[in-house]
Design a protein around this nucleic acid. Structure first.
Lengths: 296, 296
DNA sequence: CGACATCCATGCCGCCAGGTTATAGGCGCA
DNA sequence: TGCGCCTATAACCTGGCGGCATGGATGTCG
């Protein structure tokens, strides 16, 4: 018997939401489409997976059994997909390097050039990731190496070499009372509302709020932003200020915002990271070596 | 990204056959349909999985990576399917019992009646399996218990209780020179061609050929049959003789064939089997207990 | 060297699946 | 009893899947 992983994802969403209407919204399909798909899965399996009521969809016993197993199955498929694409990249002599906005640094073109000299026939595929993906795809195997701002969640499970540090500055609206200062003491910012990353990013978000460097005071969150554009807009619109690497001013200049040096806060570190399984991989080692050479 | 397991099965078949034409035949689809499906999978993954030539389809490196992983994925899906259906049967208070033709025995109705008295609200779903499935679905988890002729492949991994024995007789064409005998000595059958089960069934096939009770002489195979009808036809048409339980004559009577007692060959044993994981399962234990009670 | 065989690919067509919108049915609540 | 909320059904549209007919490429053989 065959099934589409889409059907299994639909089922899993309904199982989690307990409602066809909410699951349909989450999946960006109409509720009637979802009700038909779930009915089809039940027909395929020959057993009801849900009981229906005005209160929504409750799992039956077989539904529960399936709901326990489907996430593992979908995760396995995602892993097979990644590993196949990884093999494809290798076969095509492409090194996939993830990075977050502005973590790559200005020396990246030289690193790439050095790598392709060392490995003729190879090329580097630079892949930008969203800030909510702090390992830039490395943890999930979507890339072979990554240039990352440290620290990031899951870092302990990956190999990291620090490449350079960079002062952290503050981004604030140009009309802000502190915007004209040459240097701003961090303690003067402790009561400002901050634009933060999503809560789920843990240590990463805390780091960029300098949560551990506020003398024990809590952080005031003005708003949450997940993408540089949203982050800049939030600052420009006065929802809060934010810490950023000094170089961010060159990448993310925008009318209405100002970057200023900050004293009393640790600098940002940028590193190259790779998976422990690739320690012996000569291609990954060469890339890391080129990064380290450029550091000197 | 979503994929249908049908697409993965198609891919796996092509990978194994090395040819779209042969894989299409095996999958009962047309060759153009298969070529389009494989192309679609390659488009989905964004990488070629095969190189094409007049010699057929050779796996690329990513194709090889996928071909290594897809069987495990499909096996996991089959397992999830089985476990879901198992949960469904439990929820519906149905005990699924597999059996091979005539292994169930005449006392089965009494066993089922005793079980439903002991477990009101439950019913037994008797499921006949093909002879090529000697555990009647028990090894794969398609059933909860099984009534089986012993021995069978994979038996060591399952729990078994012998219920009864039954003499083995011979089935031969009515025109056979030995057909009129009251009892036939097995040694007189040693040179006869035999109708056998498929080679892949191992010990099961050897048992029904009484391979270990021929004084070291090899078995002459007349033909292979996988289903009772084919097996009976083969005997009637004179392709060979066969050993069978004595009771088979009542289930498989047919013009042109005769059943006769045989001396010098061990009797057939019938047992109830279940999976070790179900040792503590009270429902399975009750069924086994009912089988054992009926034995007395 | 041309005919033939064999393998995969393309085009066209019919049928069905997946999605939408509109709306119906059932039920709890104020 | 009307309203709101949830799932289900009907009608429609578009695209996918499979078949059949045929084409393209290539190796073999006489």
């Amino acid at each position: 018997m065959d099934v589409d992983t889409r059907l299994l994802r639909y089922f899993a969403a309904v199982a989690q939401e307990g409602s066809l209407t909410r699951a349909a919204e989450r999946l960006f399909v109409s509720q009637p489409a979802l009700t038909k798909q779930v009915r089809q899965l039940e027909a395929l399996l020959g057993t009801p997976l849900f009981t229906r009521s005005r209160a929504g969809m409750a799992l039956t016993e077989p539904g529960r059994a399936l709901a326990e197993r489907v996430p593992g199955l979908l995760a396995d498929w995602d892993r097979v997909l990644r590993e196949t694409r990884g093999a494809a990249a290798r076969a095509a002599r492409v090194l996939r390097v993830g990075f977050l906005a502005n973590a790559a640094g200005e020396s990246t073109p030289r690193v790439v050039a050095a790598f392709t000299r060392r490995r003729p026939g190879w090329r580097v595929d630079m892949r930008q990731a969203a800030w909510s993906n702090p390992s830039a795809g490395l943890a999930g195997g979507e890339v072979d190496a990554a240039l990352l701002r440290l620290p990031f969640p899951g870092q302990d499970a990956l190999r990291v070499e620090v490449l350079f540090t960079e002062p952290r500055w503050v981004v604030l609206p140009s009309t802000h009372r502190l915007a004209a200062r040459e240097v701003i003491a961090f303690s003067e910012l402790w009561d400002e509302p901050f634009v933060a990353a999503e809560a789920g990013t843990g240590a990463w978000r805390d780091y960029w709020l300098a949560a551990d460097e506020r003398g024990g005071r809590p952080v005031r969150i003005g708003t949450v932003a997940d993408h540089p554009d949203d982050w800049l807009s939030a600052v420009a619109n006065g929802y809060g200020v934010a810490l950023a690497p000094a170089s961010a001013g060159r990448f993310y200049a925008r009318p209405g915002i100002t970057y200023r040096p900050v004293s009393g806060v640790s600098p940002s570190r940028v590193g190259v990271a790779w998976a422990p399984d690739d320690d012996a991989d000569p291609v990954v080692r060469d890339f890391v070596a080129c990064c380290l050479d450029e550091r000197r």
